[in-house]
Design a binder for these strands. Structure first.
Length: 586
RNA sequence: GCCGAUGUAGCUUAGUGGCAAAGCAAUGGUUUUGUAAACCAUGUACGGCAGUUCGAUUCUGCCCAUCGGCUCCA
């Protein structure tokens, strides 16, 4: 089915939902009811209760009456009078905007027509159109009201909050079913569930929300990832630095963050005054740069560090590891000349691609955020430097054959940027890393280097993080792999499972021979079947079974995750096999 | 922060205005196991603080936390 027709179905369901709600709760006021990715929603005020099954039943009842959708064009004045009578303030607001939007500052505004759509004779709704012809065309087995949520009128938190009812709708029952199955799968892979199940991280009411604690197993994954990225940094000319986690507010006054994000800063009281827990690292790194005089010969200077920043995010925004208050960044800053911008972007893009390949992320693309072409004055930095840099960035992406989309007007006022986007198991896109040019901070802090002719010049800065937030990156990987990490990342790589405790000494001997891997000898007094089951549930890459047979022939029986029993082999043979997967793929 | 839902043992769940039930896990023992759950025994919980009540895990209020959204995201 075409998207247009599917949208018509979904939109018709939205009308049906509103009609059903008005039948059940006549005093409810209507907001808007658009089509969304997997269905539709409608917003209501003064909704007495949102009993989804009751409303859904009512929708079916109404649909079975075979009502025709019919659009009429009404003068805005007539529609206004109608909705005044109906006491629908949100609709009145919409009509006002619609008519004024067409002819601003015109007295003729009220003569403009607005679309009004009838559902039979039962229900009338302000609408620009896009419906099926008759409710009998609606696939009543292919929709489901899914959830209730609050949403601000017109998405502005200063406005009243309405009750939003979401529905999923497709053209066939089968499509709805597969959509619901997909949601279940996403739930199964949810890192919030898998993380604690696999013993990777936890939260504590006493520590506080949004402050994850990593267990030994989770820390192995963290450490493996950060070690890998730190090595990439060093190999590419970045120097590691270290900074404390607080600073005087003055630092952020100069950077401008104190004013912009004051609500979101954690403040710490000291004997001599107040400190701020660092919400970002650049001002600190800038202080290191500024501690010495720099020559153009030294540039580019590249600092990097894995370190945690603290942001007092709104409580309702916290979610598992994807949105936390202690965010660990693999942060880095390049100080360079304007001429060096393209080479530095290329370098960072190269590192980024290596990381993406290593963790096996297949579905990703880059959002190239550029300045708004019609509003060049709103941006800091010279016109030529901007246009050159933007052109160079796009040329680079073309040359490197990275999929990208241009987002005009999305650049920060201080510079253009590239953001890496990836799809998670819920099909949601998240940004996980960023490479940004910055013309602002060097100015604010008065950074300088001595140029070839002896004059003092201002360097440009590049902010970049390859994982972005280590916590969020881990969340993405947990869902990406559904907890079954590749060998190099797996917190426990090998389990050695003796058939009975008679073979414990042999199991220990094998563990010695395989030294260097993350090995767990399962000494518990349990049956083999049980230990195998546990190993499978913990998603251990290899289970090595040893018993009478193996001890006699000096072998191990190898069971690979997802592949089953591989038969027996000599430890040396197994080591050879492992050598291919012990490191991240290049 | 806002709207709504939820909170019973380490986990998954049952239940009640009057001694809180079970499975898995844990612990002790028996068993000596051949590729996804051996057997017996044992301990542990009503998120917190107030209020109503003779009595609250159950009802009410506030707080904390989690989830689904909205808003925000340097």
């Amino acid at each position: 089915m075409e998207q247009g027709q599917l949208d018509n179905i979904r939109h018709s369901f939205a009308h049906l939902l509103a009609a059903a709600v008005k039948e059940l709760f006549p005093q409810a006021q209507l907001g808007i009811g658009p089509v969304i990715e997997d269905g539709f929603y409608y917003d209501f005020a003064l909704l007495a209760e949102a009993d989804l099954s009751k409303i859904e039943e009512k929708m079916r009842q109404i649909a079975r009456k075979n009502l025709a959708f019919k659009k009429e064009l009404w003068p805005a004045l007539k529609a206004t009078q109608y909705y005044k009578k109906e006491k629908q303030p949100f609709k009145l607001e919409l009509i006002k905007e619609l008519s004024q939007g067409k002819k601003p500052a015109s007295t003729k505004a009220t003569t403009d027509k607005v679309g009004m759509v009838w559902t039979g004779k039962l229900f009338l709704d302000l609408c620009r159109g896009g419906h099926v012809k008759n409710t009998k065309e609606l696939p009543l087995d292919a929709f489901k009201l899914t959830r209730v949520a609050g949403a601000y009128w017109k998405g502005d938190e200063k406005n009243p909050m309405l009750t939003r009812i979401y529905g999923a709708a497709f053209s066939t029952k089968k499509e709805l079913a597969s959509h619901l199955t997909m949601l279940e799968e996403a739930e199964r892979r949810d890192h919030k569930k898998l993380g604690p199940e696999l013993g990777l991280f936890t939260f504590s009411d006493l520590v506080g929300s949004g402050l994850p604690l990593f267990t030994p197993k989770g820390t192995i994954i963290r450490r493996t990832l950060t070690d890998f990225v730190e090595r990439l940094n060093r190999e590419n000319g970045f120097e590691e630095v270290w900074i404390p986690h607080l600073a005087k507010p003055d630092l952020y006054k100069i950077s401008g963050h104190l004013e912009k994000f004051q609500e979101d800063l954690f403040r710490v009281k000291g004997k001599g005054g107040e400190f701020v827990l660092k919400p970002m690292n650049c001002p600190h790194h800038i202080q290191i740069f500024q501690s010495q005089l720099h020559s153009y010969r030294e540039l580019p200077i590249r600092y990097f560090q894995t370190t945690t920043v603290y942001r007092d995010e709104q409580s309702g925004e916290l979610a598992g590891l994807t949105r936390v208050r202690s965010i660990t960044q693999d942060d880095g800053h390049v100080f360079c000349t304007e001429e060096q911008i393209p080479q530095e972007f290329a370098l960072n893009l190269k590192i980024q691609k290596e990381l993406v390949a290593a963790v096996g992320l297949k579905e990703y693309w880059i959002r190239l955020s550029l300045r708004h072409p019609k509003n060049k004055k709103a941006y800091l930095g010279s016109d030529t430097v901007w246009s050159t840099a933007q052109r160079q960035m796009e040329d680079l992406l073309k040359k490197e054959k990275v999929p990208y989309r241009i987002a005009e007007g999305e650049a920060a006022f201080y510079g253009p940027k590239m953001d890496f986007m990836a799809k998670d198991s819920l099909g949601r896109e998240w940004q996980f890393s960023t490479i940004q040019l910055d013309f602002n901070l060097p100015k604010r802090f008065g950074l300088e280097y001595t140029a070839q002719d002896g004059s003092r010049k201002t360097p440009v800065m590049i902010h970049r993080a390859f994982m972005g937030s280590v916590e969020r990156f881990m969340a993405m990987l947990i869902e990406h792999y559904a907890g079954a990490f590749p060998f190099w990342l797996a917190p426990e790589q090998l389990w050695i499972v003796p058939v009975s405790d008679k073979f414990l000494p042999y199991a220990e001997k094998i563990a010695q021979e395989l030294k260097g891997f993350r090995i767990n000898v399962r000494r518990e007094n349990e049956t083999l079947g049980k230990k195998i089951r546990e190993g499978e549930m913990q998603k251990i890459p290899y289970l090595l079974v040893v018993g009478e047979k193996e001890q006699t022939s000096n072998t191990i029986s190898v069971r690979q995750r997802g592949k089953g029993d591989l038969g027996s082999m000599k430890p040396a043979e197994f080591l050879k096999k492992l050598s291919q997967e012990a490191l991240p793929p290049q």
